[in-house]
Design a protein around this nucleic acid. Sequence first.
DNA 1: TATGGTACAGACAAAAATGTAAGTATGGGG
DNA 2: CCCCATACTTACATTTTTGTCTGTACCATA
Lengths: 119, 119
Amino acid sequence: MGKIKKTSTNYENRQILDAECEEVYAANLIGGRWTIAICCYLAGGKLRFSELRRRMPNITERMLTLHLRKMEANRLVKRTVYAEVPPRVEYELTDIGEQLVPILDMLKKWGTKHKETIQ
Amino acid sequence: MGKIKKTSTNYENRQILDAECEEVYAANLIGGRWTIAICCYLAGGKLRFSELRRRMPNITERMLTLHLRKMEANRLVKRTVYAEVPPRVEYELTDIGEQLVPILDMLKKWGTKHKETIQ
DNA sequence: TATGGTACAGACAAAAATGTAAGTATGGGG
DNA sequence: CCCCATACTTACATTTTTGTCTGTACCATA
């Protein structure tokens, strides 16, 4: 989420997988501890920064900011700033972000089944 | 993939999300740089350790081992050891692992569409 | 003048993931 | 006895991600 070193094997390997495997490309977009949770909350409609924070009591402001910025860069969310004081910033899923929701739903069902299966 | 510190905030946060969000639970199962790629190759049928390695020239033996072990622990793959010399070990998807394949396929389609969308 | 709320940014630290390099066991073939 | 192949393991180093803490701008209200 911070700086990446473009000469590392790690970075190189990620690029290679990213390029040759669309599943990995997609997975990298929703990677990060809080990304999917944020998607789930935004699936219910647009939310302010502070509202997201309230829904995820354990995330820090820094982590929320970093994740939202990454998601914005990846075009999963749209960020709207209102010129008010105190500031108001709203986040919502983009079209392509919305299209992820049913997949997350399948993942959810699979996860539930997996939990049952392994015990 | 190595040791985890069970007293860390990081660990605690993961547990919390894991418990309250099945999507995150599922995503954690397929997390890790090489996990999805391994699933994709195993979707075509069982493969030996060395065959997997040949299909992923950039993975190291250590990383392949670690990922396969994690996937085995998570019941995504089944590991079969043959008492031969030199050793032969085969890996294949479990039932629940197979059920992940169509979801990865949706993820792939979404990834392709995302790539088109963002340019 | 002091305080409060919102949505951040920056420096730093800790933890986790990934990668590098070397070594292991086994038995068969030369 | 030496080397080969396979499927690992171990110690260590590097990179990346995550978390802690402090500070900031803005204007309104007390």
